[in-house]
């Protein structure tokens, strides 16, 4: 506990919240997520050259095809709008989110690049998402009760 407090508040400033001194050469560790197991890890490492460097054209083209497929799915969902009914908007939002993450993570290299850039962009995204969701909520509530 004392160590924790020290890291947070101690006067010498060597605790957490420090930016690493030199992190340019350190890529993110390879994927070890819970989903997919060893097979997915192997695939991703193969495609992203071990997650070490920027990936190659093959990987980018695969991502491109993936994006195109998702877009096709979106349009398909549009055709089925009346059948999907209440699920329509959530499905579209999820598909858009997948595309968004794919472009940001792979094309904008956040997956391979220093984590600090992810923090920068994520902070903008989080503040934006929360604030504007709140705005939508308030406006809609005020509109309904008017």
């Amino acid at each position: 506990m004392k160590k924790l407090l020290k890291k947070l508040f101690y006067h010498d400033g060597n605790g957490w919240w420090n930016l690493p001194k030199n992190m340019s050469g350190k890529p993110n560790p390879p994927y070890e997520g819970p989903i997919g197991g060893p097979w997915l890890i192997k695939m991703i490492n193969l495609m992203t050259y071990g997650g070490k460097s920027h990936a190659g054209p093959r990987f980018y083209i695969i991502v491109g095809i993936f994006l195109a497929i998702i877009t096709a799915l979106e349009v398909w969902a549009f055709e089925l709008e009346s059948e999907l009914a209440i699920l329509y908007i959530p499905i579209l939002l999820i598909l858009a989110l997948i595309k968004f993450v794919a472009v940001v993570a792979f094309y904008m290299h956040l997956r391979f690049d220093n984590r600090f850039f992810s923090y920068v962009f994520a902070s903008g995204m989080i503040v934006g998402t929360v604030v504007f969701s709140l705005l939508l909520f308030i406006s809609e509530a005020a509109y309904m009760t008017r």
Binding site: L19, P20, K21, M23, F117, F121
Partner: peptide, 11 residues
Amino acid sequence: TGLSNKKLMMW
């Protein structure tokens, strides 16, 4: 930080 100024500013 060892990060490029330009890239940081772009983000």
